[in-house]
Write a protein that binds this DNA or RNA. Structure first.
Lengths: 195, 195
DNA sequence: ATCATTTTAGAACTTGTATTCTAAAATAGG
DNA sequence: CCTATTTTAGAATACAAGTTCTAAAATGAT
């Protein structure tokens, strides 16, 4: 038949995702993406159509092979507040602690709310995070307080992701996350006593 | 002597700031900026040097004529928790509730931490917000808890600004802000009783 | 081993966009 | 009322970046 592809699609998408995470979609030039992925432009266009296609594929890879995994691990059906805290802590540790932020959070700012090449990944991620946190909190502190606390945690989450690009001390953010979860642990104790 | 300038510099910088807020620096073309400001490119280049110069001027105008004002009003020396809550609420109301976010918060994502045309405005704003909130909390709930709570509020603040570009319900964010401040009001009561 | 088909490589091209340039219009002072 | 100087206007330019194209290399099936 025909020649087989010589590169690893997952590795290419991970490398492209990092380039987009660092520079944004617009400022990541094809030359930059060639360097990051090790491919030449011909191969990129052959495999992904165009720059937008590469971005879509990289974002989907990021959401399905990274965000989804972490939500499942840290906010899945058998996760508790301790695991959820690790979700927040994990964005302050490698590989996200390089100062380039989160591809989804960055894309919210770059692309906004209008339908576009990032909408699917953004909306899927927002739903995953919100629902994961909300149902975990419902189990842990009860349905009454869960919704309000969930939105506060979602906002905290995106605040951490945004300021992780600003040079703000990771340690200071880590402490703030710790304080928030100390409060939630206390709420859980009160909730368990009431029952 | 010579012909006088026919446009209002402040109005032009406000219009340019809105265009940058909506599209970002890179995606706001000169043609877009001409439309937004009402100037033609010749006047822009004559008055501000280049696109980067216009951005720097617009960002400085934004920080000094908007951020600074709001911090002074809502987190100044005689402000309390009630005023601070209004700072958070105000970013969910006009003119910031148009879904285009905050020029500074957007610039954190677009430019990151590396020195560049947005660094001054970003760093000045981060310092203003952090210090304003921290000293207000020191007065309101005491020095012991102030620092940790301040960082949580700063993260909440940037979370709101980021998600304000995502189509997330403004009302849901408003409720989350309300819940956070209810908790701080309770902390203030406890702190005042202790004294 | 040969061939059909795909990937790879890199040059060529096209388009979009920031910037510069040239000339005309306008204004405040002499 | 001139005139020097600046702003304004818009065309011209230069450059960067995304995309396309052409040809060669590679590979699996027949």
């Amino acid at each position: 038949m025909a020649r087989t592809r010589s590169f690893d699609r997952d590795a290419v998408l991970a490398a492209a995702g990092n380039a987009f995470r660092q520079h944004g979609y617009r400022d990541a030039s094809i030359a930059e993406l060639e360097r990051a992925t090790g491919l030449v432009s011909g191969s990129i266009y052959n495999a992904f159509g165009d720059k937008a296609g590469l971005f879509r594929a990289a974002l989907e890879h990021y959401v399905h092979g990274f965000v989804r995994q972490r939500i499942a691990a840290f906010a899945g059906a058998d996760a508790g507040l301790e695991e959820l805290e690790q979700l927040f802590v994990s964005v302050l540790e490698p590989p996200l602690s390089d100062g380039y932020g989160c591809l989804v959070n960055n894309s919210i700012i770059e692309f906004g709310n209008a339908p576009g090449i990032a909408s699917d990944g953004i909306n899927e991620t927002l739903a995953l995070v919100r629902q994961g946190i909300a149902s975990l909190l419902t189990r842990e502190i009860g349905a009454a307080a869960a919704e309000l606390e969930a939105m506060q945690l979602v906002l905290l989450y995106h605040g951490v992701l945004t300021l992780s690009r600003s040079g703000t001390s990771l340690e200071a953010m880590r402490s703030a996350v710790g304080a928030t979860f100390d409060r939630l642990l206390a709420a859980r104790s009160r909730h368990n006593n009431k029952q």
